[in-house]
Design a protein around this nucleic acid. Structure first.
Lengths: 338, 338
DNA sequence: TCATTGAATGACAGCGCTGTCAATTGGTGG
DNA sequence: CCACCAATTGACAGCGCTGTCATTCAATGA
C-alpha cells in the first residue's frame, strides 16, 4: 500500500498488468463476479491492494454499469425531522452499498427545480424527494428521468412515480377530533412559516375541516413568518395569549418544537397544563415525551419513511414493482398537555 | 420540453445537431464559457431546452472536467449536532454548485474505512470527515487520494490534510474551572456510550485534568452504553443519584441532550437547580437555552464548522492554501443550572 | 492593401471502465 | 479417442463528455 500523495490513481489496466490478466478479468474479480477462478481472484486482489487501487465509479457508471448514488432532496436540516428521515434512508441505502447525494431546497420550488436538474446530471440510480411545491418543470424532469422517484412525507397528492408518507390532513383532523372529545371548545392555532411548509398547512386544513364538521371554528390562528423552533413557540404562545381577549382552551401548535416552547412558556408563567391551557403538537419527538408532563402530539414514523423510500428505490432497481403509494400512518399520543 | 418516459437521454451531439454547431460548442455554451457568441448561446439553449437535455456529469468528470461532489462522512444523524454541521456544509457547497455525498460511520472505524473507499471511488472534489478513530488504512487512503480533505469537529489531533473544529479537551477543562469557581466541590460525570464517542471522551479527560490540577477528583463517573438522548439523561441522572450515598454538588453531563433529561428529572423530583444540584451540559443547543432555567453549557459553533470546512475545500480547489488547522472555539454559557 | 490579431468555432483523442460476444481450456461420457 | 459442455478468460467497442491544439474569419492598423 503506497502512502504518497499521487494525483494519478492506478487504473484497471495497471492492476491487470501486475496480476497478469486482462482488464476485464480484474473488473469482474473486483466486482465479485462468480465466473472468476479463486486463484485469479486472489492474485487480482493482491495486485489491487499493492497498488492502492481505488475503483473509478465514474467510468463504470458511464460505461453502462450501475450507479449506486441516490439523489435526496429535503427542504431543511434545521429540525430533527428531516435528519431522521435521512437516517432511515441512509441505513437502507448503505446496506445495499448506495450513497445519498444531498440537496436542500429551503422550501423553495425554484431551488428544488434546480437541485433536481443538478442531481439528475449525475445519473443517480434513483431520487427521493420531500417536495416543496414542485414546479411543472420539476415534474417533467422527474417523469422524463427514467429512474425510480419516491416523493416522501405526504401522500395527499398524486405522485409522479411513488410516494411514501402519511396524510397530514388526516393527522390534523384526528387531532381536532381528539381535542373535541376531551371537551375543549375554544381552539387556537400557532404556526411557523406556514407559507413555505405545505405539510404544516395541510395539517391546519385538516384541523379546520374537522372543527367545522362539528360546527366549531378556530378562534385564533397565528402564523409567524420564521422557521419553527422552541424559542419561536415560546415567544409565539406569549404573543398569542396576549392578543386574545379570552384565553383559548387549547392551542394546536404546528409541531413539537413549537409546542415544547409553548410548554416552557406555561411553566415559566405558572400556567397549568392542561387545566388552564391545553397544548398539542405534532411529530412525537422524544423531547416532548420526556417533559415532566408528556406532550399531547401525533407521532410520525420518520425514520420508517426513509427506510421504506429507500426500499422502494432498491426494489424497483431489482426489477420488482413496489406499491405506488405507501401510508406509514401516524399515532396520536394522548399525553398530559391536552 | 418532452414529458414522456425515455430511458435514453439526449446527448450533447443531438443538441449540437439541432443547434447546427459542434458538440464542443454546445459543451462550452452550456457551461457558460465566455468564448461563445451570444447568438450561438441562445440557439444552443433553445435546442437543449427543446430536447430536455440534462448534462451528464459522469462523462464530464471522467473526461477530466471538474467534479462537484464532496464526500461527507459523519458518525451519526441521530442528534441535531451533525445535521447542524451538515447544514453549514450544504449551504456553502450549494452556493458553489457542489453536492455532498453522504456516509454515516456509526462511530465505527471499520465502516468509516469502507465509506472512505466507496466515496473515493466517485472521485469527489474533496472529502469532509468527522473521524471516528481512523484506521491506518483510512489515513493512507486519504493521504493518497490527492484531494482536499478536512477533518472536522476536533482539532486536538494532527490532521492528514486540514482540520476545522475546536478543542474538546479544552472545553472540558474550561467547564471544570468554571464550576470550581462557582464553589462546587463534589463532582460527578454522566455520559453516554463513551467508548464510541471520542470527543465526549476528550471532554471528560479535560474535565478530569482541570479538577486534578486543583487537587480535586471526580467522585462519580457513570457512562451508559447507549447513544445519548434526553431519556437517557433523565434515566441516567436518576440512577446516578440513587447509587451515590452522598449527593454530588454538580453533574457534568456528556452533552445537552443528556443534560436536558437531567433537568427534567430534577423538575419532576422537585430537586431545585442549582441549589440542590447543579447540572452542566455541552453543545449549547437552543433547547437548553429555552428551558425555564437556561442550561449551563458550552456553546459550540457547529454550523460554522460546516461552513468553514466547505470553504477550505473550495479554497483549495481554487488553488489557494487555507489554514491547516482552524479553531472555531467555543463559548461557555453560564446559565442558571450551575 | 496586407500582415496581424483576437474572437469564435471545430477536430481529435481519450478519460477508465463494462456490456457483449467470442475464444480458450480441461474434463466427461460414449 | 472425440464430440461436447461448463468454466474461465479475453478482444473490442463505446459510454458522453472535455482538454488541447488547430482553424476560420472579420476587424484592425500601418
Amino acid at each position: 500500500m503506497q502512502d504518497e500523495k499521487q494525483a494519478r490513481k492506478p487504473t484497471l489496466s495497471e492492476v491487470a498488468a501486475l496480476a497478469g490478466v486482462s482488464e476485464i478479468t480484474v473488473s469482474r474479480a473486483l466486482r465479485g463476479s462468480p465466473s472468476v477462478a479463486g486463484k485469479t481472484l486472489h492474485r487480482v486482489e493482491q495486485a489491487a491492494a499493492s497498488l492502492g487501487y481505488v475503483r473509478n465509479r465514474l467510468a463504470g457508471a458511464l460505461a453502462g454499469g450501475p450507479s449506486n448514488q441516490v439523489g435526496v432532496i429535503l427542504p431543511s436540516l434545521s429540525n430533527i425531522v428531516f435528519p431522521d428521515v435521512l437516517k432511515g434512508l441512509e441505513i437502507r441505502l448503505d446496506q445495499a452499498g448506495f450513497h445519498p447525494v444531498l440537496g436542500i431546497s429551503n422550501y423553495d420550488p425554484q431551488q428544488e427545480e434546480q437541485l433536481i436538474h443538478n442531481l439528475l446530471a449525475w445519473r443517480p440510480a434513483g431520487l427521493v424527494i420531500a417536495p416543496s411545491g414542485m414546479t411543472d418543470v420539476s415534474r417533467s424532469l422527474l417523469a422524463g428521468a427514467g429512474l425510480p422517484v419516491v416523493e416522501i412525507m405526504d401522500i395527499d397528492t398524486d405522485p409522479v412515480d411513488m410516494a411514501v408518507g402519511m396524510s397530514h390532513r388526516g393527522a390534523g383532523g384526528d387531532m381536532a377530533r381528539h381535542l373535541m372529545a376531551q371537551g375543549y371548545r375554544r381552539f387556537a392555532y400557532l404556526g411557523h412559516d406556514i407559507e413555505r411548509d405545505r405539510r404544516a398547512c395541510a395539517r391546519l386544513t385538516g384541523f379546520r375541516e374537522a372543527l367545522s364538521e362539528a360546527g366549531l371554528i378556530l378562534d385564533a390562528c397565528v402564523s409567524l413568518a420564521e422557521p419553527s423552533s422552541v424559542t419561536l413557540g415560546r415567544r409565539g404562545l406569549k404573543q398569542l395569549l396576549a392578543q386574545s381577549d379570552q384565553r383559548p382552551d387549547v392551542v394546536y401548535m404546528s409541531n413539537d418544537d413549537m409546542a415544547v416552547g409553548g410548554v416552557f412558556h406555561c411553566m415559566a408563567q405558572g400556567i397549568r397544563l392542561p387545566q388552564d391551557l391545553a397544548l398539542a403538537g405534532f411529530n412525537g419527538l422524544e423531547l416532548g415525551q420526556t417533559l415532566p408532563v408528556p406532550l399531547t402530539t401525533t407521532a410520525t414514523h420518520r425514520t420508517r419513511i426513509g427506510e421504506i423510500a429507500a426500499d422502494c428505490i432498491l426494489e424497483r432497481l431489482a426489477g420488482r414493482e413496489p406499491a405506488r403509494s405507501t401510508d406509514v400512518g401516524f399515532t396520536l399520543i394522548a399525553g398530559g398537555t391536552a
